[in-house]
């Protein structure tokens, strides 16, 4: 190999090395950029989906609240009114029948209507969204447990741990509806006699625990049965908890009852604007 050939090969080697380095740099940069961009796109998509789901859920909750409020008002105004009227008429009849054998029966009917009227009023209160807004979550939950206890079918216990603090109107309404749904599920499906509701006010988060002493079930088996058969109750609860930035955990085993734990973070301190708008809405 003469000097010229060595020189030519050297030129090729140097140029080749530089070109190879540039190619590798281009390839690696492209791959890194591609993956970063893809990750970003996926994240954006995920955020969009979550926002969309949250909006849908919020709309559902608003519709549900509105419907329940209407039913509550209807129960209070119409059914309650009719029952009051029936009670007055029965009272008149009781007076007319004084001294006869039919009077105790009418007295009994009056007492039944009175109990029904109380139940209807209690039910209309729990259906009314305004109750949570007026009295707060703790008081509304207490009312709900009282209402269930009064049915005579269940023994109820309501426990509060920690110093209660406001969670915000929307969060409290959502939590109240979640508690109602969990309690209804327990009443319908558990077959138990004891319902316990615990509200734990921690420094950073709030926990709501609903437990029953019923038959329990195998959650894995239920989820295997598919959406149609297993229902969407737990999924709804979980979605609502996530909407509040928290989560919902269900634990159950056959013969050991069921425990639903809803955990949400403590709301951040209200901004001056929020406080102002809160005061304005209260005064209206």
């Amino acid at each position: 190999m003469n000097n010229n050939s060595v020189g030519d090969v050297l030129i090729v080697l140097v140029t080749g090395t530089i070109a190879l380095l540039l190619m590798a740099l281009f390839g690696v940069s492209f791959i890194l950029y591609y993956h970063r961009r893809r990750k970003q796109t996926l994240l954006e998509k995920q955020t969009l989906t979550e926002t969309y789901q949250r909006e849908i859920l919020q709309t559902q909750i608003e519709i549900q609240n509105h419907t329940l409020q209407q039913i509550g008002q209807e129960l209070h105004d119409h059914v309650g009114q009719m029952l009051s009227l029936t009670m007055i008429q029965l009272s008149v009849l009781e007076d007319d029948l004084s001294g006869t054998a039919h009077r105790p029966a009418v007295r009994h009917a009056i007492e039944t209507v009175e109990r029904t009227l109380q139940d209807v009023r209690a039910l209309s209160k729990t259906l009314d969204n305004g109750t949570v807004q007026r009295f707060g979550l703790k008081e509304s939950l207490s009312l709900e447990m009282d209402r269930i206890r009064r049915t005579g079918r269940f023994q109820t216990q309501f426990l509060v741990a920690g110093a209660p603090y406001p969670l915000g109107e929307q969060a409290e309404t959502v939590l109240f509806r979640m508690a109602q749904e969990s309690l209804t599920n327990a009443m319908k499906h558990s077959g138990g006699k004891q319902l316990t509701l615990t509200a734990e006010y921690h420094a950073d988060f709030f926990i709501l625990i609903i437990t029953d002493d019923g038959a329990g079930f195998n959650p894995e088996e239920t989820s295997r049965r598919g959406a149609e058969l297993s229902g969407s109750g737990l999924l709804n609860l979980r979605q609502r908890a996530r909407m509040l930035g928290g989560d919902c955990l269900l634990t159950s085993r056959p013969d050991t009852g069921t425990r639903v734990e809803i955990r949400v973070p403590m709301p951040k301190a209200e901004s001056p604007e929020d406080k102002m708008s809160g005061r304005l809405s209260e005064n209206m």
Binding site: G7, D8, I11, V12, L13, V14, T15, G16, I18, A19, L20, M23
Partner: peptide, 13 residues
């Protein structure tokens, strides 16, 4: 001539 031979590097690569 040198530049011409440098071109071989791209062919090789």
């Amino acid at each position: 001539g040198k530049i011409y031979y440098a071109g071989y590097a791209f062919n090789y690569l």
